[in-house]
């Protein structure tokens, strides 16, 4: 295995038909981190938020009800697994599917909360995530059209960058940014994070940041330096 990706040696690949998972030091670490966090989330209880009551001296405890807890934990585990998958996949379309899946379950994780503000935020996040799926898949499609392949290992061995590939990368970036709710779209997310259920909120944040770092790797593979 004598392939280098961005200067680091590939440790190994797992071929599954036309979907190839590959590991470099970077991918392996991110994969392991995603799985470790998923494991912690799977075994954790949720915290109780203590809020001061208005006009009285009492405290109010906000907890996660059991039914809500179950569905949110399930979705959080799915989200963690999808993130872990997105870290090691060597197929661009596969990557977009994983990103899309994390977007969907993230909406689910906050959508299960019975608080009006949170549901509002989840609704807006849902709208952005839905709209972002167009540039997400569109970007991947443009890159396929420009290079003739979706395999990242193949794209990595190309020596040129055409304008269409740059356009595809920009669309891909927009898609992932919307789907994970980062940078320009983070305003809706901050509101969702006020609810109890810290382990589940962790996975939302984790998925978005890890996927973004991984996206940078993919974009650097597509766009060659001058």
């Amino acid at each position: 295995m004598d392939i280098t990706i961005l200067g680091s040696q590939i440790i190994g690949i797992i071929p599954l038909g036309d979907i190839v998972f590959y590991f470099t030091q970077f991918n392996l670490f991110m994969f392991a981190t995603a799985l470790a966090f998923t494991a912690i989330v799977a075994i954790s209880k949720t915290e109780t938020q203590v809020e001061a009551e208005f006009g009285k001296l009492g405290d109010r405890a906000v907890t996660v009800a059991k039914k809500e807890f179950k569905i949110r934990r399930f979705l959080a585990i799915i989200c963690g697994l999808a993130t872990a998958g997105a870290m090691i996949t060597g197929d661009l379309f596969d990557f977009t599917l994983f990103v899309c899946l994390t977007g969907i379950v993230n909406i689910g994780i906050v959508g299960a909360v019975r608080q009006v503000d949170v549901l509002d935020a989840a609704y807006q996040y849902g709208l952005i995530a839905m709209m972002a799926s167009l540039p997400l898949f569109g970007g991947a499609a443009l890159i396929l059209a420009a290079t003739g392949t979706l395999s990242l290992l193949e794209i990595n061995s190309l020596t040129y960058t055409t304008p269409m590939m740059i356009l595809g990368s920009i669309l891909l970036f927009l898609g992932v940014a919307g789907e994970t709710g980062v940078a320009p779209f983070f305003a809706t997310k901050a509101e969702m994070f006020r609810t109890p259920g810290s382990p589940f909120l962790l996975i939302i944040h984790l998925s978005s940041l890890l996927i973004l770092v991984r996206l940078i790797e993919i974009l650097l593979m597509i766009n060659k330096p001058f």
Partner: peptide
């Protein structure tokens, strides 16, 4: 990999 250091920085945020 430098990318990994930045991945670690992102996890620090989390």
């Amino acid at each position: 990999s430098l990318l990994l250091i930045f991945g670690i920085y992102a996890v620090h945020k989390i």
